[in-house]
């Protein structure tokens, strides 16, 4: 299914942002410039379609840093395949949200 899924540009941006290391909602908002009302619902749908998965940060880590624990997102294998297809479909995607390696270059 994943290889056949055609993402919207917004969803592709969010996937790209997660792939570049923005692993929680607010960082994705900062990276993409999209509002919370767009980012979080899109992430719910991506999670529903098993393109991303989420997990809660351990409480002990958050306690050590004196902050509330966050929910982290990461790409699934299907999400990675879909992202590859989306990069071909949206060639500017990697320019808009470059990966850390590309940025360092």
């Amino acid at each position: 299914m994943a290889s056949e899924t055609k993402l919207s540009h917004t969803a592709a941006m969010i996937l790209q942002a997660i792939d570049t290391g923005c692993v929680y909602g607010f960082s994705i908002m900062e990276m993409t410039g999209l509002p919370s009302g767009t980012v979080y619902p899109a992430m719910r749908r991506l999670e529903r379609d098993e393109l991303i998965s989420s997990r809660w940060e351990r409480q002990s880590i958050a306690d050590a840093e004196q902050r509330p624990p966050r929910k982290y997102y990461k790409l699934t294998a299907a999400g990675r395949v879909t992202l590859e297809a989306s990069r071909k479909r949206y060639p500017l995607l990697e320019r808009m949200i470059p990966s850390p390696e590309a940025r360092s270059v």
Binding site: M29, P35, S36, G37, P41
Partner: peptide
């Protein structure tokens, strides 16, 4: 930011 929670 909080108002976006309604859409979510």
């Amino acid at each position: 930011f909080c108002l976006g929670a309604f859409q979510d």
